[in-house]
Amino acid sequence: MIARALTFLWICLSSAVSAQGFAGLGTDADGYALPSAQTALTFPTDHLSHPDFRIEWWYLTANLQGADGREYGVQWTLFRSALAPETGSGWQTPQIWMGHAALTSARTHRFAQKLARGGIGQAGVTAAPFDAFIDDWQMQSQATTGDPLDALILRARGDDFAYDLNMRAQGDLVLQGDQGFSLKSPTGEASYYYSQPFYQVSGTLTLPDGDIAVTGQAWLDHEWSSQPLNEDQDGWDWLSLHFEDGSKMMGFGLRSGSGAHFTSATWVTPVGETTAYGDGALALEPLETARVAGRDLPVRWRVTLPARGIDIVTEPLNPQSWMGTGFPYWEGPIRFSGTHSGSGYLEMTGYD
C-alpha cells in the first residue's frame, strides 16, 4: 500500500511538472505575485524561497578539470513550482519541488531527477545556515561571515554517479538586468534574477571506475517569477561564460514563434563591475546541429556582443548532454574561442 501511494504521488508530481513545462511559463499568472522594477532585492532574505511566485530555481553549473586530465561538467538544480496561488501547510501546500543533477564528460552524460511535495520536510530552502535541499541532495552554506553564499558545499547522487564539492566565492553577487529585474520580452514579462559567478571549486566526483579529484569554477543563478515568458515564446538559449582574463558574461535569447530572439546580456569585469545590455545587443547564431534524443539541436553557436568586442564560437564538451527529465532540455559544459577564449555552460529549452 505504501509503495502504491508513493508511486501515485510520483505520477502526480511528474504530470504536474510536465504539463506546466516551458510552455506553461507563458500562461496567465492570475493570483500570483509579479516582479516589479521598483522592488529592490534584499540579502540574505532573497536567497530563500518566494512561494507567492509561481516558479523559482537555484541553479549551479561547474566547469571542472580532473586529476585524470579530463574535463567535466556538473549541474545541480532545485526547482520550486506552485500548483496554485493559495497557501497551505503539510500535505496541503501547493508547492512542489524538483531536483536535477548531472555529471558530464566528453564520453558520458549522467543525470538524475528527484521530485518532492513541499511542506513535509522532504525539500525546501532554509536559513541559518542557508540550505537548499531535496532528500539527500544539498547545497548548504559553510560561510561564517559575510554572505551565506560565499562558501557552499554541493552534494548529489544518482544511480551511477555522485559528487561532493566545496565552493568559495572570489567576488560579489551580480544583479542581472536592471538591479535584478530581468526583462524577458518586449511586452514586459520579467523575473527577479541574480548570480554568483565567482566560485572556485574543489572536491570529488564518484564514477563507476572510482573517485576523481577535481578543481575548477562554478556559477550559481537564483531566479523567480510567475510569468517569465510571453505566450508567443516557447524556449530559450542561455549561456554563462568564464573568460580566461577573469571576466564573466551571462547571455540569453528567448525564442518567439517566428524563431526570433529577445536577448539580454550582462558583462562582469574581474573585479565585479557590471554592465547590462538589453534586447538586440547580443546576437546568437546557430552554426551546427547534432541529432540528440531524436531531434536536431543547435549545439555549436556563434555569440557576438559588439559593445564588448566579443565574437566567439562555442563548442560542446559532449553534444549529447540531454536531460531526459520530467521536462527535457539540453544542458552541458562548453568551451569557446575567437576574439576571446574560456569555458562555460549552455542551456537550451523548448526544442520539442
Score class of each variant (00 low, 15 high):
337 S>G: 13
331 E>R: 03
239 L>A: 07
203 G>E: 06
271 V>N: 11
265 A>C: 13
337 S>W: 14
306 P>T: 08
269 T>M: 00
303 V>K: 10
236 W>I: 03
248 K>R: 14
246 G>M: 05
253 G>D: 01
294 G>D: 09
225 S>K: 05
329 Y>H: 11
283 A>L: 09
324 G>D: 15
246 G>S: 11
278 G>H: 09
233 Q>W: 14
212 I>W: 10
237 D>M: 09
286 P>V: 09
265 A>W: 00
271 V>D: 15
200 Q>S: 14
268 V>S: 03
275 T>W: 07
298 P>D: 09
311 D>K: 05
312 I>V: 14
222 H>Q: 04
227 Q>G: 05
246 G>H: 07
286 P>H: 08
245 D>E: 03
228 P>R: 06
323 M>Y: 02
295 R>F: 00
229 L>Y: 15
206 T>E: 08
310 I>Y: 09
281 A>Y: 06
233 Q>M: 13
241 L>I: 05
224 W>K: 07
246 G>K: 03
220 L>F: 15
241 L>G: 00
275 T>G: 03
338 G>L: 06
285 E>M: 11
203 G>K: 08
228 P>G: 10
335 R>Q: 15
253 G>C: 11
259 G>L: 05
210 G>P: 07
298 P>Y: 10
269 T>I: 01
267 W>H: 13
294 G>W: 12
250 M>E: 09
218 A>G: 14
313 V>N: 02
261 H>Q: 12
260 A>H: 11
309 G>L: 07
299 V>Q: 01
340 H>N: 13
217 Q>D: 06
326 G>K: 04
324 G>C: 04
211 D>I: 08
214 V>D: 05
205 L>P: 01
329 Y>T: 02
277 Y>N: 04
311 D>C: 10
279 D>G: 06
285 E>T: 15
223 E>F: 00
213 A>S: 14
216 G>V: 00
266 T>W: 01
261 H>S: 06
217 Q>E: 13
309 G>V: 12
289 T>A: 12
225 S>C: 08
204 T>L: 07
231 E>V: 11
214 V>R: 02
206 T>W: 11
262 F>K: 02
258 S>A: 15
207 L>W: 12
